[in-house]
Design a protein around this nucleic acid. Structure first.
Ligand code: SF4
Ligand code: SF4
Lengths: 132, 132
DNA sequence: CTATTTACGACTAAATTAGTCGGGTATATG
DNA sequence: CATATACCCGACTAATTTAGTCGTAAATAG
């Protein structure tokens, strides 16, 4: 309950790694996955999503790899998580209208407030905060 | 991702309901489940957990049911969720030491900070805030 | 040409959550 | 006492989500 996914954690680890390597250097999925003990294919998929979203940039072929191409201060965690996992919310009705309880629900408003405070935390948090 | 469980939501709905009924009155699982469209057996289990934890009190037999026996200001959400779902944390290493990445992990400290801020939100939130 | 590395979708496996069932205990009422 | 009502509780199944794997393709350095 209230967990972030493994995939997201792996991606964060990789992003922090990418942020720490020398300017102009690249890191491969293989390097990262062995260094941190992360299943390679899974990390690969996560990084592909981040590349599609232009947070990182890929170079194919030998001596290829990934590098960070966005200012860590510009990537907030809400955006980051939503790239990887889609809409984020502690309850369904925050992004989906198919809840059976919707019409009779007596807690929607307060739950929404909680959701907003959590969202605010992630909105304010940037990759730089994870990396500092 | 980052979702609270249905069971927890159902329990909150029920608690708010219990908080709003007249002093001395009881509400049965059946009443609550039909009023809000909640699967009866599932709600029953949740309320049994809350009863075991002494947040609410059960009366058996005809005219029986549940009533709230704790000051809503005294029940914080962390406690509430942990009664229903066990230890709460956005990542495993906050309560379990079996993470493969643990030794090499480069994000544990910052993730922990995030976890703490979320926990703080729930620590400060009481049932009264859900009920107001 | 070959080895390396990303891209991508389909697939399987594992874990968690949601919901059901069956048999029990307590109790108000007649 | 018999009965109906309501909580108690654990074991079970089903559904959904998350985790991880696999096969194939495309780009590129040497
Ligand atoms: S808050 Fe109420 S309406 Fe929203 S998902 Fe939860 S139960 Fe459904
Ligand atoms: S923060 Fe690091 S050590 Fe903790 S659970 Fe996530 S990967 Fe494992």
């Amino acid at each position: 309950m209230l967990k972030i996914t493994r995939k997201a954690e792996y991606a964060l680890i990789a992003l922090r790694h990418l942020n720490n390597i020398k300017d102009g250097e690249l890191a491969t999925v293989k390097e990262i996955s062995t260094q941190y003990g992360i299943p390679q294919e899974l990390l690969a998929k996560a990084l592909q999503q981040l590349a599609r979203a232009k947070l990182i940039e890929a170079t194919k072929g030998p001596y290829g790899g990934y590098k960070l191409v966005t200012d860590p201060n510009e990537i907030n965690m809400t955006k980051f998580f939503e790239i990887l996992e889609g809409p984020m919310g502690i309850m369904d009705c925050s992004f989906d209208s198919g809840c059976n309880q919707l019409n009779a629900c007596n807690i929607r408003t307060p739950i929404n407030r909680i959701n907003d405070s959590i969202r605010t935390i992630f909105d304010k948090l940037t990759l730089a905060d994870i990396t500092y």
